[in-house]
Nucleic acid binder design. Structure first.
Length: 637
DNA sequence: GCCGTTTTCGGCCCGACTGTTTTCAGTCG
């Protein structure tokens, strides 16, 4: 069983126990275990083989025994018995807004309702309103909840939620009386997928802000509307919540609603140790006296801690690290010096080499690797060897125009074929400045086979970076079934960098694997996989993922100064990296012309060595994809 | 069910909003 399958099973157990009426702390324990199993960087089955299940946070004797039984026999008697006591389909009923364990249990026991379909039929038939504690309004809300559930498709990729959040924050900031407006929640923590949006406002006049929010054109339905809190469903199906408090309470408010829940629980325990109660309003002493915090730094300071960046707030050791003053200095988007994975019209990109280069340079980058697809990826117009050579001439010409301040590399995103062979032969690979190797096809091979395939690529002395290692696409396509620990160890051994693909549809490696990779000593690269100039602006999503993995700039090869990066590529030794030419050879070169928007691939006469690296040419690559986000949302439990 | 340099037993975060409630339960975050 995979970590995710184990996690899902324990979450279902928690749901069924809750409907059954089990004590809340037992339920919370299963939920906690479900979460830590899902977020564990190693395969739980490997941990199990080592007999170290109880080293996993939230896994004690009882849950360890259940995991052991599951992995040994493929079944769990406890769960089988539980399913005879509570219909397993009731867990899905819990996913309907406004239906919790008490109502689910009531529907089941009073009306024999065990599925969402049965619930809808009963609600529409007016059968719910006469149940104790319910009325017509409750019944109507449940119908709305079922309809909302049908519209939504689960969590939304960060890249889909982000622009919506930006628009609403901008709207809130422009309202009269609003001092500060921020988005919080998992979006602020840069989680790869978002369950809902949280907005927080500092203002002395909450009600006009509330009124403006619930009537915004993006709002499809108002779920709740109180004096300091409102909830709405947006036209795209996302739920959005707004809280408003006075400015002198904004620190505790922002901290609280940024989460994560687990981080907050730990924080409040720390507060209690100091005789303080912490809520979104303030710290409160036992005598009722409040300590107000206008910003988050003050909140952490009251607890004797340094500021903890939002991306780290997952209760994954950040509070312990903060307590010993051992928080890493996380990478920042401004640290990025290069992008080592980008496409042009030579394969499936939308802009020319020069256009992409100009876009990268405009954004402050110092180095760009053009990595078009290799030959076998026909659907992406992968480059034949002849075309790769022609592209080299164009890249060299562009480099000559650019002068010393910018390095343009010819690379390739080389397909790792189904048998593990790379899509160009060694001689071609050697002649490239940089090689990104990626899986795009046959992603559903069985674990041993696809792991071996990736290991073969990592062990090739011609590969510098593994692109989007698992091949996942958010929100719905799972990554390949890889033995990730084996992959990460091999990458650490061979010095191959693993990509955090910044496209919000990928964010691959994810935060959990990226953190494990760093623990094992891997190098990482944050690349946009840009197919258009706009895609360079997605880099911050990759940086957010790296920050969630506790990455510092020195762990990431494209934060390195260009000289260091080129030296690293030299050291990897398997291709003819052209160093800046000796000065005496340089003929009176034309002054570095400002790069202008050029036309097509143009064949160019022999390149001259220019200050950065120019190059001869060769082969071609193929394959990959960038697609626009899609998506939906719903209630996340 | 988990966890512990204050505990191997006794804790385990705190508040807003809604609806059907005459004082609070359920749900959510």
């Amino acid at each position: 069983m995979t970590n995710k399958e184990l996690s899902t099973l324990f979450a279902t157990i928690a749901d069924l126990l809750e409907i059954k009426g089990e004590v809340i702390y037992k339920i919370l324990a299963y939920r906690r275990a479900s979460q830590t199993l899902a977020e564990h960087g190693r395969a739980v089955s490997d941990v199990w083989k080592e007999g170290k299940l109880r080293d996993i946070p939230g896994v004690g004797q009882a849950i360890a025994e259940k995991i052991d039984e599951l992995l040994s026999t493929g079944k769990l008697n406890f769960f089988e018995k539980l399913k005879t006591e509570v219909p397993v389909t009731l867990a899905e009923v819990l996913a309907v807004q406004d239906v919790g364990p008490k109502k689910a249990s009531l529907f089941w026991k009073q009306l024999n309702i065990t599925t969402v379909a049965e619930l809808e039929k009963a609600a529409r038939g007016g059968k719910l309103r006469d149940l104790p504690g319910l009325g017509e309004k409750s019944e109507a809300k449940i119908i709305l909840g079922i309809e909302a559930k049908k519209r939504s498709s689960g969590r939304v990729p960060l890249g889909v939620a982000w622009p919506v959040a930006q628009e609403l924050v901008k709207f809130l900031r422009a309202l009269p009386g609003v001092r500060v407006a921020e988005s919080a929640g998992s979006l602020r923590r840069m989680k790869a997928t978002i369950g809902d949006l949280d907005f927080l406002v500092a203002s002395d006049q909450a009600e006009p802000v509330m009124a403006a929010f619930v009537t915004h054109p993006l709002v499809a339905r108002v779920l709740g509307h109180g004096p300091t809190k409102s909830s709405v469903e947006l036209t795209n199906g996302l739920q959005a919540d707004l809280r408003v408090l006075p400015p002198d309470r904004f620190g505790t408010l922002l901290q609280y609603f940024t989460g994560s829940k687990d981080h907050n629980v730990k924080l409040r325990e720390l507060a209690l140790d100091k005789g303080l109660s912490l809520s979104e309003h303030a710290f409160t002493r036992k005598n009722g006296q409040e300590i107000l915090c206008a910003n988050e730094t003050e909140v952490y300071k009251v607890l004797g801690l340094p500021y903890i960046p939002p991306e780290m707030r997952e209760d994954r050791g950040e509070l312990q690290a903060a307590a010993r003053n051992g928080l890493p200095r996380l990478i920042d988007v401004k640290d990025l010096q290069s992008d080592l994975h980008a496409h042009t019209t030579w394969s499936d990109g939308k802009l020319s080499v020069r256009e992409m280069t100009l876009a990268a340079r405009t954004r402050g980058l110092k180095c760009l690797a053009i990595t078009d697809h290799s030959q076998s990826l026909g659907v992406a117009n992968g480059l034949t060897i002849d075309r790769l050579r022609a592209q080299r001439r164009e890249i060299d010409a562009a480099q000559a125009d650019l002068g010393a301040g910018f390095s343009l590399l010819q690379g390739a995103e080389v397909e790792i074929r189904a048998d593990g062979q790379l899509d160009y032969d060694d001689a071609i690979l050697e002649d490239l400045d940089i090689v990104v190797a990626s899986l795009h096809t046959s992603l559903r091979q069985e674990r041993d086979k696809i792991t071996a395939r990736l290991l073969k690529a990592i062990e090739s002395r011609h590969v510098d970076i593994i692109g989007h290692p698992t091949g996942r696409l958010l929100p719905d396509r799972e990554g390949a079934d890889l033995d990730m620990d084996a992959v990460l160890r091999a990458a650490a051994d061979s010095g191959v960098a693993l990509e955090i693909n910044a496209n919000p549809e990928r964010l691959d490696l994810d935060d959990v694997y990226a953190r494990r990779a760093l623990e094992l000593g891997c190098l990482l690269a944050i690349n946009t996989d840009a197919h258009h100039s706009d895609h360079f602006d997605l880099a911050h999503f990759g940086v957010g993922t790296a920050r969630r993995a506790w990455a510092t700039a020195d762990n990431i090869i494209n934060t390195w100064p260009t000289e260091k990066l080129l030296h690293w590529l030299d050291e990897r030794g398997h291709r003819r990296v052209r160093r800046p030419a000796p000065i005496e050879v340089a003929p009176p070169a034309p002054p570095p012309a400002p790069l202008t928007m050029p036309a097509r691939p143009v064949a160019q006469p022999k390149p001259k060595p220019s200050t950065t690296r120019a190059k001869a040419s060769k082969p071609k690559p193929s394959s990959s994809s960038a697609r626009p986000p899609k998506s939906k949302t719903k209630k996340a439990r």
